[in-house]
Design a protein around this nucleic acid. Structure first.
Lengths: 236, 236
DNA sequence: AGGAAGATTATTGTATACAAGATTTGCAAA
DNA sequence: TTTGCAAATCTTGTATACAATAATCTTCCT
């Protein structure tokens, strides 16, 4: 079974481009030129277009008819809406996980939690950020609702660049870890209401974290518009 | 046709094919042949492929590498998972709507509700089914969370064919309407907890409705399947 | 000099051609 | 009759060619 060969090229391209988006290599507003991408990846325009169409329906980019594709620029208000939904999905995962997690689920969650602790102790935000995802994904899986887990993973991924910035905020990593602690305990003792509530507020963007988000946003799309002159000015 | 000309062809095709899927014209398991579709719609394979790719990432169809696309066959277990998530999204919409709905939102909801009443009194399930969607969409909008409304609408649409069958069940239309009544009142008086709870149980597939769903599923994909064992069993 | 209109260029959208893998069909042997 | 294999056929995946629209540049007029 030639596993790699059976995968569609447009799929691989979608992954690679998506990776470049969520890591910030293609920041919001970046114009995605089809021929340029085709040359970069050494393929023709066809699979590139198919990849872009997928990214568009997943919300990562915006395709304006006859005017090309740009990396989605999410307005602050909409970002808050997305975090609100994310919080509710996480809460649901937590509630279900508290009810349905089996020993192995709990084990995976605890392991991910322990790994986070190491990163926190080492004061390594980048590693913590990565392990934090593992922790949350473990909870999604423990919900034993595959569809929910997929939805949560997808949205989590879309919010990845913004979440990353959040962890830079002073003490956020420590607070995050303490909250994780409470989450693990709630799930382990089967307290579904507590698990849901803690996860919801863990994810939600409220109070001062709202201001933090806005501030980090400003640092993210500094003045990127679709106007090429802006890029020129920046490079000058 | 100037106005229509500005819209991508693959977009229009996606809509038309999606419509054929959710209305049941292309039942689950149907093979979607690219050249056949191209001839049917009088276009080349390229826009057809782009439409199929979109439908795939929205979950309406399944593309197996080098083996073509089929209309998604959602297993009963997964369908339940999807309804569970739908229930939670609806609950969230209801909670927010109860808090944030303005006079005009309430007005639209009440109008949709009144329209449902007419269809119920006329004992017209098809019309009720259509107006029921309008009612729910009105609540999504009243949540004043655009992203949430989009997610809810998308999932609602995906579940459309299954929901439709549910309404055929004896008395489901009457029960549904009574529940709508309670929902409207909860939202109108700003009782967010009640709105969320009623909406959740209104949508959820629990108890006897679970059996109804399974039964209607059986009537839906009668013999169309990719699972060889099922085909063998049936042909025996 | 500034702006408008037309021409030019560049990029997207669609169609067709070609390549590669999967399915089917036909045939032979057990 | 059924099973295994191989050739033929059909379908998908990718590349290229062409068409149509948007962006840019030039030129001319005020």
């Amino acid at each position: 079974m030639e596993a790699a060969g059976t995968v569609r090229l447009s799929e691989q391209l979608r992954e690679r481009i998506e990776e470049n988006i969520v890591t910030g290599a293609y920041p919001p507003g970046t114009r995605l030129d089809e021929v340029e991408l085709a040359e970069t990846f050494g393929v023709s325009r066809t699979p590139i277009r198919e990849a872009l169409i997928q990214l568009s329906s997943e919300g990562f980019i915006e395709i304006r008819p006859r005017r090309g594709a740009i990396v989605a620029q999410i307005a602050p208000a909409r970002l808050c809406e997305m975090f609100d939904v994310m919080a509710e999905l996480e809460a649901m995962c937590g509630r279900l996980a508290a009810r349905r997690a089996v020993a192995e689920d709990i084990k995976r969650i605890r392991e991910a939690h322990a790994a986070c602790q190491s990163a926190r102790d080492a004061n390594d935000p980048d590693t913590y950020y990565r392990l934090n995802e593992t922790f949350h994904f473990a909870i999604y899986v423990a919900s034993h609702n595959g569809f929910l887990a997929e939805q949560a993973t997808g949205l989590h991924r879309r919010l990845r660049p913004y979440r990353r910035l959040q962890l830079r905020v002073r003490n956020r990593m420590n607070n995050s870890f303490d909250e994780h602690n409470a989450i693990v305990e709630a799930i382990a003792r089967g307290d579904s209401d507590a698990a849901a509530d803690i996860l919801r507020s863990h994810v939600a963007v409220q109070g001062e974290r709202f201001a933090d988000l806005i501030a980090s946003l400003a640092s993210m799309h500094p003045d990127k518009t679709t106007d090429p002159t802006t890029a020129m000015r920046r490079s000058a």
